[in-house]
């Protein structure tokens, strides 16, 4: 729930570090040199990791409900972003062209936009991690049945913390890319609702919110659809004010379809299934 705020916060921190902006109160007495891009990227990723680590520990060690912890994070890191930037828009202006070119420059690699290259790279790493490594298998097992995983000797707490840490680190990476692309961060709104887009994209791509199901490819497709939908509806002549409604309706349709295809036994859809010539498995 908190990744949108984490994106906003890390983007603000990234911009401030690069420009050497003064630290916010009460740290404003500290020296504030401009950081080199490499160091700043590393520091911001580490910040994301620490945020995830905290969330993960709160969930596993203090047994707090994940939703509550991340909801609190949503508020806390949004506030932190506004505090860090003194509620002012942060950007890089005309500086750091090279870094921005590397992170965002168009068609520098095999004729592909850099953001796509990074996306594919991350997707490849995620695929290896989730679908080919032991850790990924543990994630799926924990997602499907945490108790059975624990009874099988998997140290579930460790992998849950790892999941939170990865999630927030990736959110920080997005914050960096966001700044490189847009060159301007609005501390009070950058990243708003991103968590909901992330969940929506995952669900649309076949992940189960109960856990233990989903593929990287599915998530890529789901997220892509989610981003393309507003454009699509625009082109179809639907007013842009309705863009969120279109997204919501698409998700709802997906959820209903999923329920229909998966739920055994009699259901509301039986007449429809009969119409389509599908028989119930049970």
């Amino acid at each position: 729930m908190s990744i949108g705020s984490v994106v906003g916060f890390t983007a603000v921190v990234f911009a401030s570090l690069l420009r050497g902006d003064p630290w916010p109160w009460p740290l404003d007495f500290l020296p504030h040199p401009a950081w080199t891009p490499a160091l700043a990227v590393f520091a911001v990723l580490a910040l994301g990791a620490v945020i995830g680590l905290i969330n993960g520990c709160l969930v596993t060690k203090l047994h707090l409900q994940p939703f509550v912890v991340t909801l609190c994070g949503l508020f806390i890191y949004r506030g932190a972003a506004r505090w860090f930037a003194d509620d002012k828009v942060r950007g890089l202006g005309v500086e750091f062209e090279t870094m921005r070119y590397i992170l965002y420059g168009n068609r520098i690699f095999l004729g592909l936009p850099m953001s796509l290259v990074i996306l594919l790279l991350l997707a490849a790493v995620a695929t290896v991690f989730l679908h080919l490594s032991v850790y990924g298998r543990y994630f799926f097992a924990i997602g499907s049945n945490e108790r059975a995983a624990a009874y099988s000797g998997i140290v579930t707490d460790r992998y849950k913390i790892l999941a939170y840490t990865l999630c927030s680190t990736l959110a920080a990476a997005f914050g960096i890319l966001y700044l490189a692309q847009e060159n301007s961060v609005q501390p009070s709104s950058t990243g708003n609702f991103l968590e909901l887009y992330a969940i929506g994209g995952a669900v649309l791509g076949g992940c189960s919110l109960r856990g233990g199901e989903g593929t990287v490819v599915g998530i890529l497709i789901g997220t892509a659809i989610l981003w393309v939908l507003p454009n699509l509806s625009n082109m179809l002549g639907i007013r842009s004010q309705l863009e969120h409604t279109v997204i919501g309706a698409a998700l709802l349709a997906g959820a209903i379809l999923d329920e229909w295809l998966h739920r055994p036994g009699p259901s509301l859809f039986d007449p429809l299934k009969k119409l389509l010539g599908r028989t119930n498995p049970s």
Binding site: L132, S133, R137, S144, R147, A148, G153, G212
Partner: peptide, 29 residues
Amino acid sequence: RLQGLVLPASVKDNVVLASLMELSKARLV
């Protein structure tokens, strides 16, 4: 059903669940 098995997973995934590390090479299954 609650503690012994990951019900939605396959027979194979359940059988190897506790030996994944032993059956892996460089942490890849």
